[in-house]
Design a binder for these strands. Structure first.
Lengths: 233, 233
DNA sequence: GTATGTGAAGGTGTTCACAGCC
DNA sequence: GGCTGTGAACACCTTCACATAC
């Protein structure tokens, strides 16, 4: 005979931790799981629509504006997970939707960002945010390069990487951007977290090992290219 | 994101043709569907392992090296889809695996890249590839900025964006990188495709509409940040 | 008629459990 | 003992179909 529904005892610590962190993540999300990138696309498309004078948008119009093979059904499913503010037979009030999505995505308030590594990539990100994303403010910049340290970028003094602990804790940055070489990334990440940063955007081509409470997004240029080459090969 | 296999030109939409094209698409994928980013991570981790002197690697070791919550089962499933070259009881020959993964990812040969838009971001990518990814060569660079045009970057002359059609077709670039403002991206993409580029890495914050035969990967910095802010909010 | 919202069905990716082999 | 390889179970996400509301 076979015992059923046996409680899983004495699991491996890694598996257990994984499960616990999954459960936590689930509880925090509740509403949305892997649909976040889509919600962001809806938000952007709706901003454009509002800007272009559209007051009401249907799921079909929104799907077409987003492109990327997203269906109107998908749009409705995603939106309905946030509540019911469409009007049947009419569509969605664009402004209401933008606001709702903005709130869900955390785009209804401003954010302070610390950039570590101010080479071309750090520069690119800073410039991009500065003139395109009003909600994100570069509040701190660090680098190791002596010729950079002490200079200013749009009023922000570039500090030496070693000054991180001295400067950062006072600035209320919740987001850190890591654009340093792979060898330095793990250490920089840990130091940022120690200074109160709880979300990281990592461009270093490696996996960061950090406490589960820290949210990390990694952008791996080599990975993206090799996905392209796979399809070319 | 993987586009759905859709017959690109409606020459003969018979059931037979549909089935054939599906089978073809399946045959091309067969091995890998959404696991490509993981395969790349395995490849990188294995390169490190080989570099560090490991000759044999188990699925567990590989999983731990990759991190990111990937299980050893996941590793085995992914690898087994490429064939059976593990030795039961022992593990995988690291060198054999690296080579196999390299072949699957198209990293067993060199690639020529055209960059359009040579601001900070274009510069960052070029520099990154130049000194870290030997397989990728910057073969062409374009920009609109008069002060840039005519100058050289590592021996590559920076051409004016309007010269694209004149210069690019002779260079055999299969990959294009778009780091221009959103307003110019669609047009640039179409022109690159017209010049024979069939894979694009797009940094412009918008959706490109292109023929299905073109593979596109989009990196959207604002999207990544807003995913972070969602978890912070 | 038109478009939303949603349970149910269908697909796809991940995890489990164990057979097979060293 | 150890580790791979894999069908089956499971969980998740997407699509379908249609009830619901304007």
């Amino acid at each position: 005979m076979r015992a059923k529904a046996r409680p899983s005892n004495g699991r491996k610590p890694t598996a257990q931790r994984q499960q616990a962190s999954d459960a936590l993540a689930r509880a925090r999300d509740r509403v949305l799981i892997i649909s976040l990138p889509r919600l962001f696309l809806y938000h952007r498309a709706l901003e454009d629509a509002v800007h272009g004078g559209l007051a009401v948008v249907t799921s079909r119009v929104l799907a077409d504006r987003v492109g990327r093979g997203i269906s109107s059904t998908q749009v409705r499913k995603d939106l309905s997970s946030l509540g019911n503010f469409g009007r049947r037979g009419q569509g969605y009030d664009a402004t209401v939707l933008v606001n709702k999505l903005g709130r869900v995505l955390g785009l209804d308030r401003d954010w302070r960002i610390a950039i570590v590594g101010f080479g071309y990539l750090g520069h690119a990100l800073a410039t991009f945010l500065e003139f395109r994303e009003a909600k994100f403010h570069i509040a701190a910049i660090f680098d190791q390069e002596p010729s950079l340290v002490g200079t200013h970028w749009r009023g922000v003094r570039i500090g030496h990487a070693s000054e991180l602990e001295k400067i950062l804790p006072h600035l209320g940055c919740s987001i850190g951007v890591i654009t340093v070489p792979a060898a330095a990334a793990q250490s920089v990440a840990e130091r940022l977290v120690a200074c109160g940063v709880t979300a990281l955007l990592n461009f270093a081509p490696m996996t960061l090992k950090l406490p589960a409470r820290v949210t990390v997004r990694s952008i791996d240029l080599a990975s993206e290219l090799s996905i392209l080459t796979h399809y070319l090969a």
